[in-house]
């Protein structure tokens, strides 16, 4: 299923397939013609993706077929073992936690998981965690500290779930607590925004020493739809809100919110999931390697420093 702006690309792909089929069927040599079309296709895709509007990036970040957090985990974590439950309220399938190895060293993995189809999406609550999910994340952070395991957090959520039970169980409290817990980790933490970084629900597992983002992922204080509903009183203005919010990987790099952008394959991660997860794997490995050998104090201090200096303002010299 193509995104609206992908229609010309999809049409050209269909044409190439058609020509290939015709060539096979009629036993004629159309290699040159097909090769020309393929060059055109690559140019068109490159052109299209080089000039995506911010709203179009949001659509790519949410595209069906885009690798989910667990797809990325499968690519860079060896022997992943999922561990369930928050030891108090239940188990939240929207936030998956577990253990595994990266380059031989043990890690704690936290992954906000959207579904690959409607059924899984309902099970995963569309990647929107309840307080139970954040409690589980915090329990795993304790474990990481205790056993000296680095933390790798994969962020992909529209936001923490806004519901009655979630509020009753202290959604705000667990997010605040999780931010604090993560900022105190004496082990290295790497966070990767792989799809949607939705507000506080994303930041709750995003207080890392290195924060990476996939090229077409977004990270925002509020969803474009909600922003539009508030600022323009019309959710249909989401494309304008996306422009105003400056929420793309390039914007965030410029703002200093992320440290590194992981390039996606041409046409977006959903076009070539295998190449996308391989790129993420390489970037996570490099980020973890870069943090190896630092002492606990230094890890806490440098992480706190990273976040302490976030923001833009004018400072009076007086």
């Amino acid at each position: 299923m193509a995104l609206p702006f992908e229609k010309p690309i999809a049409d050209l792909e269909a044409k190439i397939r058609e020509m290939q089929a015709y060539a096979d069927e009629q036993q004629v040599d159309l290699t040159e013609e097909i090769s020309l079309l393929q060059q055109r296709l690559e140019r068109l895709t490159r052109e299209t993706f080089a000039h995506l509007t911010r709203w179009q990036r949001v659509l790519v970040a949410r595209a069906p077929g885009r690798p989910t957090a667990l797809d990325h985990v499968a690519a860079f974590v060896d022997g992943f073992v999922e561990l369930h439950g928050d030891r108090a309220l239940g188990d939240d399938p929207a936030l998956v936690a577990g253990l595994g190895r990266v380059d031989g060293a043990g890690v704690v993995v936290l992954a906000q998981q959207k579904g690959r189809d409607t059924k899984e999406n309902i099970h995963r609550n569309f990647g929107m965690a309840h307080p139970s999910g954040y409690r589980k994340a915090m329990r795993m952070m304790e474990m990481a500290d205790k056993f000296g395991l680095a933390v790798v957090a994969l962020i992909d959520t529209p936001g923490a779930y806004p519901g009655i039970a979630a509020e009753e169980q202290g959604q705000a409290w667990v997010i605040a607590e999780s931010i604090r817990r993560m900022s105190r980790l004496r082990v290295p933490a790497v966070a990767v925004v792989v799809g949607e970084g939705g507000s506080g629900g994303a930041l709750a597992i995003g207080v890392a020493n290195r924060v990476l983002i996939l090229e077409n992922a977004v990270y925002s204080v509020i969803s474009p739809e909600s922003c539009a509903a508030i600022r323009w009183r019309d959710a249909a203005e989401a494309p304008r809100a996306a422009e105003a919010l400056k929420l793309t990987s390039a914007d965030l790099l410029e703002q200093g919110v992320v440290d590194e952008v992981v390039a996606e394959p041409l046409g977006g991660a959903h076009k070539d999931p295998a190449a996308a997860v391989a790129a993420t794997a390489a970037a996570v490995r490099a980020a973890l390697a870069g943090l190896r050998g630092l002492g606990g104090d230094e890890i806490v201090r440098s992480r706190a420093e990273r976040f302490r200096h976030m923001g833009r303002m004018l400072v009076d010299s007086a």
């Binding site: 605040a176 931010i179 604090r180 900022s183 507000s199 506080g200 930041l203 995003g206 207080v207 990270y219 925002s220 204080v221 509020i222 922003c227 508030i230 600022r231 105003a244 919010l245 400056k246 929420l247 914007d251 965030l252 703002q255 919110v257 992480r303 706190a304 976040f307 302490r308 200096h309 976030m310 923001g311 833009r312």
Partner: peptide
């Protein structure tokens, strides 16, 4: 968080906490 300052506002949550 103040949406007019985008993700930088979001980051204030972590900044104040640390």
């Amino acid at each position: 968080a103040r949406m007019q300052e985008g993700a930088l506002s979001l980051m204030q949550m972590a900044k104040t906490t640390v």
